[in-house]
Design a protein around this nucleic acid. Structure first.
Lengths: 121, 121
DNA sequence: GTTCCTCTACGACGGAATGTCGTAGTGCAG
DNA sequence: CTGCACTACGACATTCCGTCGTAGAGGAAC
């Protein structure tokens, strides 16, 4: 069978939609053709990594994302930035390109955020 | 022996400093305690992935980074952004946090870049 | 209670990435 | 010829991760 790329990420994407999920919920939502235990394993491993929290209710685990999607992605961006030496213009430009492409009005908000930050000093 | 984390990344970091590198150069720069062939292999694999270019001079390979550090990191940031739905404020804020921490004056440049972009429309 | 069904717990297999090295061979410098 | 420096190629172990099987617990339905 075709090995799914990024199954973990698809599971996280589901949990990031919010609420509590049983293994069954995730299984049905993502791909009922795969085995139940596949998702049990993936969720278990995400729990070991601290990406999701869980709580046992009536003998079954309820999972929820440990961080919001924004927080998780922000951490990833932060990790990349940490490897840059300084904040070179080409990187800033690439960032603006992407942001604008994904949401043109985000540039306005970005500018407002910069100014707000400056006020606080 | 302790398995080095991110040996590939450390090799790339070296090449990103610029110029042409032989296997020997990289070997001596990063960790002379490891075997010469370790670096030959790593560089070969980076070449297969297109991360580095190489050219044979007098029977020995000269390696150089295929992209600048900024271009490579920008691509990584872009990949993260592509997974965000839109450009949510928390992500923008996290980005600003990092940028400011690494280079406080970068916020000014960022603002200037946004304004320049708006002019062009 | 026996039969189902649903879960968990635990382990396992296989493929890919990657850190690490050995060996054989080639070509140039003494 | 003898070294030395490099390449070419292969190999092994570990880790990550997609995928699943099996065994067992616990409740629901006959």
């Amino acid at each position: 069978m075709a090995r799914a790329p990024d199954l973990e990420r698809r599971v996280l994407d589901a949990l990031w939609r919010g609420g509590e999920w049983s293994v069954r919920d995730v299984h049905l939502d993502i791909d009922p053709a795969l085995a139940h235990t596949t998702f049990a394993t993936v969720l278990d491993r995400l729990h070991e990594k601290g990406e999701v929290d869980r709580e046992k209710v009536d003998g079954t685990w309820r999972y929820r994302a440990a961080r919001s999607r924004e927080a998780a992605l922000a951490a990833e961006v932060g990790a990349v930035l940490a490897r840059a030496e300084g904040a070179p213009d080409p990187l800033l430009v690439a960032f603006l390109d992407r942001v604008e492409q994904v949401d043109p009005r985000a540039l306005d908000r970005l500018e407002a955020l910069i100014q707000a930050r400056r006020q606080r000093g």
